[in-house]
Design a protein around this nucleic acid. Structure first.
Lengths: 207, 207
DNA sequence: CAGTGTGAAGATGTTCACAGCG
DNA sequence: CGCTGTGAACATCTTCACACTG
């Protein structure tokens, strides 16, 4: 195991390795080689080995990696062994979709609170979560010790909301608004930018 | 103007430049320097100049860039001067959110068709779009000459659906399913992977 | 003379190639 | 003998630094 700085691209790929492993485990496969791995994810096998070796010597020479063991190691590395409760702000199109989304592992990620400023929504319940007044956001988030905030409000409101989330003690923000958030360095940001993805996509569609 | 290959990171940033420019134009600013630009987007000013210079000499030495002109150039480069109609597949949580999403410029991107396999949804109308039977996808997409498909179905169905979209003549796919699609090289892929973003986010939340 | 455009230097990430271990 | 782990070579992207121009 080396002590070099870990490239963010490596962190980017860990969730993909994990997904691939889960599929293999479901199928009963016990081992996988970096070569097999890399062909499933279309990348170079040396890449796979290097990525994994940043965190330890997980493989066995001449054999490969044990699927179960490696999956568990990666979950550990990514912090998916804990459970993370999240506060959602903005229960519009995307917000309400997220509240009922089944895509993420419920044992790891859970939307525990939801906020909106629309009086018609406040007090309503969606998927077992009561929608609260966004004016109480700071207090409620810090009260419940929430560490992740999801910003699903219109672009104009996104900066203000993210500041409130940070004030409430959140250390990670998942932003769906198509805008750059200005947040402290010690708060982590992940961006889901649908418009940007589409705009890039059509660039490559020109002939 | 140079003839070097354009880094994909540069394409990545173009939508951000455009957004920033639109804000400035709204405010009535007529010029912007690479320095000013870069501080708004937190990147290096040489980066901005280099990115833009791949496509032409848009700036004026001693002055900067004309906001209107540069915005128009970038729209051109990204192909946002055309209108792109899209076919949405899967009208569940995320799919229906996208059908009513106001985030993207309606004159450029429009969901023109929607498909699902749920008989209860087929025939319903959402935001002016009739939900059609996914079994007719290939024919209908090629009939309407759709070039972009949005995959918003569960992971297990995503590969099959993307193959149908390609068969229908789509050349770009925006995939929301948390799975790697195996598609022909001449079909462009953009991925919106919420779970992956969250998993990466919590990696950085460890202390 | 302020600010662009761009070679050259530097930083970061990927792939090769192979020693070495199980 | 097969496959990992990893230095070294290579490729790509970013930043520096400055010539040059409106």
């Amino acid at each position: 195991m080396k002590e070099r700085r870990i490239p963010k691209e490596t962190i980017d790929r860990l969730p993909l390795y994990l997904r691939c492993l889960n599929k293999l485990i479901d199928r009963g496969e016990e081992n996988i080689s970096s070569e097999n791995f890399s062909s499933r994810l279309n990348l170079n096998s040396a890449q796979v080995r290097k990525d994994l070796s940043y965190f330890g010597d997980f493989g066995t020479r001449g054999v490969g990696y044990k699927t179960e063991k490696l999956a568990s190691e990666i979950r550990d590395i990514l912090n998916l062994d804990k459970s993370w409760s999240m506060a959602l702000v903005g229960v519009g199109n995307i917000g309400s979709a997220l509240l009922t989304y089944r895509g993420f592992d419920q044992r790891v990620f859970e939307v525990e609170m939801a906020f909106d400023r629309n009086p018609d929504l406040i007090g309503e319940e969606l998927n077992g979560v009561e929608i609260e007044d966004v004016n109480n956001l700071v207090d409620r988030v810090s009260e419940k010790n929430i560490r992740i905030g999801i910003v699903a409000v219109p672009a104009q409101a996104a900066q203000e909301i993210s500041e409130k989330l940070v004030e409430g003690g959140v250390t990670g923000i998942l932003n769906f608004a198509p805008t750059l958030l200005d947040i402290p360095d010690d708060v982590q940001l992940a961006q889901v930018d649908i418009t940007k993805e589409l705009e890039q996509l059509v660039y490559y569609l020109q002939k």
